[in-house]
């Protein structure tokens, strides 16, 4: 079996990502097309007059056939032109860039806490399988996972923001004056997201670590007189990480969707809230742009996870002799 070396694999995955994005753009466009009525009716609502409808249809060139409008929309996107927001009458792109940046900030911070926290807890649980700490951890993370994130979010607001006044209830990041402010405001949404994500990774890390600790190579490493720390971190951990990374990748993908709810709960000006508000205001170009940006984020997260898995596994990263 010949396995491609890493650069070629990355190029292949990148090409596949572009293809996926193309398919996503088709779906996003068709989804909006398939809704009852045409775009002008959806934007203006029931009270619209015939004249205003006709004017809007001309403005949006809705009389053109759908494939032509799709091609025009896609052509614009390729050049960085996502159209103009109907509500704000500003280019969609400038909006999305800002909102996407803030979503990535929140998601990135959540992952930054999530990865060491859940792997660390997994290792702790694996140290004494079925011991008291293992059982307590399993129970705690499962409870965290089974409560929906908006309930966790609202509970945290009640407890930590209203009662204890440790954190602000809303993550109005536009008003942050320093980096410390940003961290302070993002604490509750980050904790909320981690509640939902931790259980699976802890479980995966725990199980694969328990397996790896029983392996011949870990036994031999310690029989060669290596220090316990070296055996744990050089021989055991890297080989136990693959399932954990897959689970983290699934979480990161979930995060792209889960963050929408959390952004709304904490009134955080991210892409998720932008999407929800654009739907409320029937801002079709903005909906399309935001949906496409979220999909792109989703695809990028999976690409990064794939590459990380490849880098960790020499069997995938080198050719077999």
């Amino acid at each position: 079996m010949r396995v491609a070396p890493i650069p070629r694999l990355i190029v292949t995955r990148l090409a596949l990502s572009v293809l996926s994005l193309f398919v996503v753009s088709l779906i996003v466009f068709s989804a909006v097309e398939l809704l009852p009525g045409d775009t002008a009716e959806r934007i203006l609502g029931r009270e619209a007059t015939k004249e205003s409808l006709a004017a809007l249809r001309t403005q949006l060139r809705l009389s053109d056939p759908a494939p032509e409008r799709y091609a025009r929309w896609l052509g614009g996107i390729v050049q960085g032109d996502f159209g103009r927001s109907l509500v704000a009458d500003r280019p969609v792109f400038s909006y999305i860039a800002g909102y996407l940046g803030r979503t990535l900030l929140l998601g990135g911070l959540a992952l930054l806490i999530h990865i060491p926290l859940s792997i660390g807890l997994g290792l702790l649980a694996a140290a004494r399988p079925d011991g008291a700490s293992d059982l307590a951890l399993s129970a705690a993370v499962l409870i965290g996972m089974s409560i929906p994130e908006f309930v966790v979010g609202i509970f945290l607001i009640m407890l930590l923001a209203n009662d204890l006044q440790l954190f602000p209830p809303l993550a109005l990041i536009d008003q942050a004056k320093s980096f410390g402010d940003v961290i302070h405001m993002l604490a509750l949404p980050v904790i909320t997201l981690n509640f939902a994500m931790t259980a699976y990774v802890v479980r995966q890390t725990r199980n694969s670590m328990i397996e790896v600790l029983k392996s011949d190579y870990v036994r031999m490493a310690s029989l060669r007189g290596l220090s316990p720390l070296r055996v744990l971190f050089v021989h055991a951990l890297p080989n136990a990480l693959s399932p954990a990374i897959n689970a983290i990748a699934l979480n990161a993908s979930w995060l792209v969707g889960g963050i929408v709810v959390v952004e709304v709960v904490f009134n955080y000006p991210g892409l998720g809230r932008l999407l929800v508000e654009s739907i409320r205001f029937h801002d079709v170009p903005m909906i399309q742009g935001a949906a496409l940006a979220l999909s792109a984020a989703y695809i990028a997260v999976n690409l990064v996870a794939d590459i990380a898995t490849l880098l960790l596994n020499p069997k995938l990263r080198t050719r077999t002799a």
Partner: peptide, 12 residues
């Protein structure tokens, strides 16, 4: 060991 292959850490 009996199984030399399994005794070598795969990531090193």
């Amino acid at each position: 060991p009996q199984n030399g292959g399994a005794s070598l850490t795969p990531t090193l």
